[in-house]
Amino acid sequence: MKINVTINNEKKELEIAPDDILLDVLRRYGYHSVRRGCDTGMCGICTVLLDGKPVPSCSIFAARVDGHEITTVEGLPEAKELAKILAEEGADQCGFCSPGLIVNTVYLKKLKIKKIEEVKIKLIGNLCRCTGYVGQHRAIEKFLGVEK
């Protein structure tokens, strides 16, 4: 079947199977920043924005997003600023979980969240095994202007 999706502000017609998962389809069409970390929606690595809201693309059928809008890290202008701050803290490490973290964090900037505890609650589903989170928090506090 065919679906029409706006991905990173570009209109696309994608050929999919009815039971294809969004994550697989995005990767098949070359959106490599969207990565598979766990298959159960727990790791947050495959997070994309669906109509502006962060969702795990491993837990959504591609057919659902017909007529909707998807944004990956490539389509987020604010991603570069956050990436730079994360890099300055050395908080990227292996980088595999970074795009999902960035997508979710950029959304938090829109929500104007300013308390670190609230940030952590909203980012709890973005797991990281390399950094121990501490460096990420140093960077994210700067990016969001978290109140100390």
Binding site: V34, T72, V73, K84, L86, A87, D92, S98
Partner: peptide, 10 residues
């Protein structure tokens, strides 16, 4: 890291 931005931006 030399590869940081490439990794972070997917």
């Amino acid at each position: 890291k030399k590869d940081a931005l490439g990794l972070l931006l997917g």
